[in-house]
Design a protein around this nucleic acid. Structure first.
Length: 436
DNA sequence: TCTGGGGTCCTAGGACCC
DNA sequence: TCTGGGGTCCTAGGACCC
């Protein structure tokens, strides 16, 4: 048996944890650059569609009817880590599937009442982290995901559904749109609809050979999973990354090469940092930039890449390469919206072969420099030490006008609890102190 | 007016091997 | 006149996920 634990409205819930005054109020979290909505609290779901632009709700934000927050990824990652750590108390097999979802291996738990267990999980995560979750339980990962989807639609289920306890599962599956199935995206849904497959039950009962031919092995696996035959196992150990990307839209359109180079150097620094955290080095590095897709005229996009021999994760080396690539890709006369750097052909840093005729660069010394930088930046503040190429006061910086506090991820912004003179909490504290 | 960021997997087709 | 079988590796593109 598999469990799927899915955090409800995850980013919005993270913001709410630290703002109890927003309980019951509509909260949305914006994409990078405050562009559009990427997360909505339950209250906000009734008011605004996903991916609505900030612009389209700005009036209501200003009037205080909707509470908007800029994206705070460091906080969300920290909260995610806390949720996963909590889940590890409930199963020896926990696979973090995304920032807000995890599979739990429930093999050997079959004798227990899994619905009750799910309730226990839900209550504990809520108490320890403040994050509300939904739990789906079933014989396969695909079904567990579907169960969690059903849970979110029906408040009467109180956050947990074990498909094994459903009397008429066919009826439930027949009521779910085929596009909700894990692995069926927009295109496959259209293709399935065109041949009359509209709900999950129809897909589950489709002919195997025909599905294999039409939709390949992934399609076949999905159908088998819907029938209760596991094709996807637990993968508790994360596979090593195969690529690392850093890309951002600019706060406003950029025309100057100098600005683009600052942005590219900044993204490259971040990318190199990620590589070092992963213990990986890149054998290939690419830089790209483009104008807005939404403009009709004056469109431009370009990418340049370079082989790295030997592979590296050294920020200075990568910045030097990235700046050359940026210069090569840049064409004057365009208004650029976005730049991107991409590291690929990643291999473990300790498996790199030395170069026989390499220039006498002291790689060990450089490694220590990077270590020292990473240490300062992780303990002091994310940009305590940086390379000059990233610029001092970037004009292209993305918009982040609704940023909340960094709460659990910055010493200066740790939440505080006020204790009033005659409150029970104050009395408790005084008692505790006198005992001490 | 404004419209995000970061990933993985599979397939098809060409080049090449014995 | 007819001219095999069985592979691997690489790349581009398309699909999916959150």
């Amino acid at each position: 048996m598999f469990g799927l634990v899915d955090c409800n409205s995850f980013f919005a819930s993270c913001e709410k944890v630290f703002r109890p005054d927003l309980e019951g109020k509509p909260v949305v979290v914006l994409s990078n650059n405050d562009g559009c909505i990427v997360a909505r609290s339950a209250e906000a779901k009734a008011l605004v569609p996903m991916q609505a632009t900030l612009f389209s709700i700005k009036d209501r934000v200003q009037r205080g009817e909707i509470h908007a927050f800029s994206s705070n990824p460091i906080l969300y990652r920290d909260m995610s880590r806390r949720v996963i750590q909590t889940l590890e108390h409930f199963s020896p097999e926990v696979e973090q599937y995304s920032i807000d979802e995890a599979f739990l291996g429930l093999h050997g738990f079959t004798h227990e009442n899994l619905s009750e267990y799910g309730q226990q999980i839900r209550a504990t995560v809520k108490q320890w982290t403040g994050i509300p979750v939904s739990v789906g339980i079933a014989k396969t990962k695909t079904l567990a995901k579907l169960a969690a989807h059903v849970v979110k639609q029906d408040p009467q289920l109180e956050g947990v559904l074990d498909f094994e306890t459903v009397h008429d599962l066919d009826a439930v599956l027949a009521s779910i749109d085929v596009g909700e199935v894990w692995g069926i995206g927009r295109n496959l849904k259209a293709k399935l609809n065109a041949i009359g497959i509209k709900n999950v039950l129809q897909l589950q009962q489709a002919d195997e050979a025909w599905i294999k031919k039409q939709f390949g092995v992934l399609g076949l696996r999905t159908v088998l999973e819907l029938r209760g035959t596991p094709c996807f196992q637990m993968e508790p150990v994360a596979a090593p990354k195969t690529m690392r990307i850093v890309s951002r839209s600019f706060g406003h359109l950029v025309t100057e090469l100098a600005d683009i180079k600052e942005a590219v150097a900044t993204y490259t620094s971040r990318c190199a940092e990620k590589l070092r955290m992963d213990g990986l080095v890149a054998g290939q590095f690419a830089v790209s930039m483009r104008t807005s897709y939404y403009r009709q005229d004056n469109q431009y996009a370009a990418a340049r890449s370079m082989h790295l021999d030997p592979p590296t994760n050294d920020t200075a080396a990568l910045i030097a390469i990235a700046l050359n690539l940026a210069e090569a890709a840049y064409q004057p006369g365009y208004e650029y919206l976005k730049a991107k750097v991409m590291a690929t052909e990643l291999v473990p840093a300790d498996e790199v072969q030395g170069e026989l005729f390499a220039a006498p660069v002291d790689t060990e010394k450089r490694g220590r420099l990077m270590q020292a930088m990473d240490h300062l930046n992780s303990t002091l503040s994310p940009d305590a030490v940086k390379f000059g190429a990233v610029g001092l006061n970037p004009s292209w910086k993305m918009r982040s006008d609704y940023f909340s506090q960094r709460y659990t991820t910055h010493w200066g912004e740790i939440p505080t609890v006020k204790v009033w003179q005659d409150s029970p909490m104050r009395q408790q504290r005084d008692t505790a102190q006198s005992k001490l």
